[in-house]
Amino acid sequence: MQDYLLLMYNDATDQAAAADDSAWQRYFAFLHQSGCFDGGSSIGAGQSFRKSGTAAGSADQLSGFIRVRAEDLLAAQQFLTGNPIYEAGGTVEIRALPRD
């Protein structure tokens, strides 16, 4: 099993649906039942830094993360279903967490 992060962005086309507490409760129940959920959190405001030049990306675009275990990237995509950000038209990026 590989570890993955689901990075949720603050770009849902339906912000009310993305913030629906009951949808999040159902989603987290699904994650817990999968046995592959390893935590997560919302992410507050922040800023990107770079020693010189302009920092890449905007720290304000990320709104939260979820850590899961899956066999591969394709299997990790099953955790998109029911995610309130994803279901509301927002972006969820899936990233592998390699074992270094």
Rank of each mutant, 00 (worst) to 15 (best):
W24R: 07
W24Q: 02
A56T: 15
S58D: 14
A75C: 12
P84S: 10
K51A: 15
D20Y: 07
D21A: 08
A18M: 03
A18D: 00
Q78C: 04
S34M: 14
Q15C: 04
H32C: 10
Y27C: 03
F28Q: 06
A16K: 05
G40Y: 00
W24M: 01
F65E: 10
H32E: 14
R69I: 03
S48N: 09
A16Y: 05
P84K: 00
F65H: 05
D72R: 04
I66L: 05
A16H: 07
Y86P: 02
A19F: 13
A75V: 06
A76G: 15
I94V: 12
A17M: 06
V92K: 01
L73F: 12
S63P: 00
A29L: 14
D38G: 11
T81V: 15
T91M: 02
R69Y: 02
Q15R: 07
G35H: 01
L31C: 10
D60Y: 03
L73V: 08
S42T: 13
Q15P: 06
A88W: 05
F65D: 04
A45N: 03
K51G: 06
G46H: 04
S22W: 07
S48F: 12
Q78M: 13
I66F: 07
F79P: 00
Q47W: 14
S41D: 15
I94A: 01
L31H: 02
G82H: 10
I94R: 03
V68R: 00
G40A: 04
Q61G: 13
L31A: 00
A59V: 13
V68N: 07
L73H: 14
G53F: 03
G64E: 02
T54D: 12
E87L: 10
D21Q: 09
I94Y: 01
G39I: 06
G39K: 03
A59D: 15
F65T: 06
D38V: 11
S41V: 03
A76R: 10
A45R: 02
Q78L: 06
D21E: 11
K51P: 11
L80G: 05
I43T: 10
Y86V: 08
E87H: 01
I66P: 00
G46Y: 09
R69P: 00
Y86H: 13
G40L: 01
Q33K: 11
A23S: 12
H32T: 09
P84Y: 05
Q33R: 13
R69S: 06
S41N: 09
G46N: 12
K51Y: 05
E93A: 09
Q61N: 15
S34A: 11
A45K: 10
R50K: 15
A29W: 11
Q15T: 15
F79G: 03
G89T: 01
I66K: 01
E87D: 15
I43N: 10
L62M: 04
K51V: 11
G57I: 15
F49S: 08
G40T: 02
L62A: 08
Y86R: 03
G57F: 15
E93N: 07
G46Q: 11
L62S: 08
E87Y: 08
T54V: 11
A55V: 02
A19I: 10
G35L: 08
I94M: 08
R67T: 11
L31Q: 03
G44E: 08
A23Y: 12
L74H: 14
Q47D: 12
I43W: 08
Q15I: 10
G39T: 03
R50T: 15
E93K: 00
I85Y: 00
A56S: 11
Y86T: 07
A17D: 00
G89N: 01
H32Y: 12
G90V: 05
F65Q: 07
S34E: 01
